[in-house]
């Protein structure tokens, strides 16, 4: 319990440790702590910013979606209209084609009928000549009575 040189020794030790702490412990520690504090604050600010951005993006996306829907329905309407148009056109073409075919068939039929009539006529002329020969029991000079036969055939 004697007061001696230890007193001074302890004072010097104390000042040394304080100096050491002042120079080598405190600044880096506080630096790290402040940096972290700043980082956290920045992070929170960033998060808030990001949330705002997200909200904005959501709104934009909804807008775009709506626009796209509108566009799509417009396109569908157009397509429907066009489809109806095509069908109508096809119907018309089919009608026209049908009419044309019908007309052609009719013309061919008329032609056939005419040809048959012609054949029939010549055949009747021959038969008439034959019949007349039989009736007259003479040979009729076909050449001599050609006009008559022709006349008869024309009447048939």
């Amino acid at each position: 319990m004697n007061i001696n040189l230890t007193l001074i020794g302890q004072s010097i030790t104390f000042l040394f440790f304080v100096w050491f702490c002042w120079k080598f412990v405190w600044p880096p520690l506080l630096g790290v702590m402040n940096e972290r504090e700043k980082k956290i604050a920045d992070g929170l600010a960033d998060a808030e910013h990001a949330q705002k951005d997200l909200e904005l993006a959501k709104r934009k996306a909804a807008e775009q979606l709506k626009e796209a829907k509108d566009q799509a329905s417009e396109i569908i309407d157009g397509a429907n209209k066009r489809a109806n148009q095509i069908i109508d056109e096809a119907k018309q073409t089919a009608h026209a084609e049908g009419d044309r075919l019908k007309a052609a068939a009719k013309a061919e039929i008329d032609q056939e009928v005419n040809r048959a009539k012609e054949q029939l006529r010549s055949r009747v002329a021959d038969l008439s000549v034959l019949g007349a020969e039989k009736i007259l029991a003479v040979n009729i000079d076909a050449k001599a009575h050609d006009d008559l036969i022709e006349q008869l055939a024309a009447e048939l």
Binding site: M1, I3, N4, T6, L7, I8, G9, Q10, S11, I12, T13, F14, L15, V18
Partner: peptide, 15 residues
Amino acid sequence: TDPNATLGMALAVFA
């Protein structure tokens, strides 16, 4: 528990 130590530190604080 040694007065030299505690008074030594107090002395440094005083200085």
